[in-house]
Every structure is written in C-alpha cells, then in structure tokens.
Amino acid sequence: MTSLALREHEAAATAVAAVAVESAAVAAEPGPRDISVRRLAKNFGERRILDRIGFDVLRGQAVALIGANGAGKSTLLRCCLRLIEPDEGSITLLGEKAETLNRRALRRLRARVGFVFQRHNLVPRLSALTNVVHGAQARASGPAYWFHSVAPRRVREEALHCLAQVGLADFAAQRVDTLSGGQSQRVAIARALMQRPALVLADEPVASLDPSAGEEVMQLFVDLLKREKLTFLYTSHNLRHATHYADRVLGLREGRLVIDAPAAQADSVALRAIYDR
C-alpha cells in the first residue's frame, strides 16, 4: 500500500469510528421500536457471517443497511424473519420475540412484515394480479387466494388498488414473465403492500435494475412507505440511496456492525471505507 493510500485508509477508519460513536445517541432515542436486534450471530460452517450484531429501528424510521458482498446483509434480513435460523442472540419484531415463536405464531408475525427481494421472486407464469393476490395469504389461507380468478371480489379490488399504487393497474392481466425488471419489482412491492404490513424489509430492492429504473422504483417505494408511515429496513450498495432515502445508515463489515449513524450526518468517506478490501 502506498503512503497516500495508507493515509486515506487511516482517515476512513477514523471516520468509521467517529460515526460509530455518534450511533450511541441514535440508539438512545426515545420511542417505540419495531426492530430490536441483540447479539445476533450466525455461522455457516466454520465461517462467521454475523458477529453479535445489535441495533434498534424506531417505528416509522427508514434505515439503510450497507456493506460489501458477503458482509452479512441478506443473512441479517433473513434472520429477522427466521427464513434463516440465527445461531445466537435475540430479535424482537413488532413487539414479538421472533426466536420464541412456534410455526403458527411465526407465520402470523411474517404476515405483518413485507419483504421485497433483490430478484422480485414473483411466480413467472401467473398474472400480475394473481401475484399481488398472493399477498392476501398473509391474512387468510385457502384456494381462494391462490389465483385471482377464484379470489373474492374485495380481494381482487384491493389487489388492483395495490397495482394502481405502483402504476401498473393496466398490466393486471399480464403474465409477469412478460414485464420488464422495473415493472416486476413494482409488482413485488404491490404484493408487499397487499399484506397491509406494519414493517417492510427489502434486500437490495433495485440492485437488479438499470440506474434509471432503479431510481424510479426506489423513489416510488420510499414514497409509498412514507405515506403509510411504515418502518423500513433495506440493504443497498448504492450509497446515494442509503443516505438520500434513509433516516439512518447501518454499516456491516465482515459480519460486524461498524456504522450506525443518522443518514444526514453520515460521512461519505466512512461509508465508502466499508467497501475497502
């Protein structure tokens, strides 16, 4: 490493530390918490993916989680809903301790949490409307919620309303494998809205889109969530998205939380330093 690079690296490390110190004040903010994570750890074999992570997300807050590939962001989000079982620690979501819940109670908790994936994860052969109707399975089960053609009228209307909110009402009958990446991701957002969630998690929701579509979808997503005053935790590699759309930024590095700072005060050098190899 050259001396200049070394100096830049040291400066960045100092910035990371400074921001991490600030995070104490954020964590101490009063108000109800929709997410509380304490000493969360997860190993895959010998490899430590999450190393005693702890943070809170206040109700109504938008929080961005950044980190290099393999830092543990997706694992952390999946652990929150126990799509991946954590090894240690506790997660309290919407007032419920996720790790203590049985299968039925866990399903009830998941129903209150919208999850938008990097790859939209829609069922490709089905229409946009049917994919959104699937969101109603958060509240009710049975064949009536498997396909829009057999769903009750009120459910179909609500699904169409959700599609209209993301600007895709005209595409309701279209198969999702004929939609563009941006349109598909908007259908996935509509499906999450159909759940009537109290909290939304999103795993790099626009990473698979081109910059223009990504910007458009991110703006729409955040606007909808702010309008509904929903709590929002999302991962991103886009530092502008992290600081522009979030109230707070969390930074993961090698499974450890090294940044927890208000987005407005987050130091761009410190944020970039998190990607240093």
Binding site: L81, L83, R107, R108, L109, R110, A111, R112, V113, G114, F115, F117, R119, N121, L122, V123, P124, R125, L126, H134, G135, Q137, A138, S141, G142, P143, Y145, W146, A188, R191, A192, Q195
Partner: peptide, 23 residues
C-alpha cells in the same frame, strides 16, 4: 425464489405449493 417470497409473507405450506410450486 417465489417459494421463499410466499413463506416470508406468512403463507401456509399448502399455499406455497399451490401458489408458487404447482404453477
């Protein structure tokens, strides 16, 4: 992917099978 999405929103096992897997 679609199976994980439906599991994440609290769908039942049968719901996941008939909404995501069978189609």
């Amino acid at each position: 992917g679609p199976q994980e999405a439906l599991t994440a929103l609290g769908a039942s096992r049968l719901g996941v099978v008939f909404s995501a897997v069978v189609p």
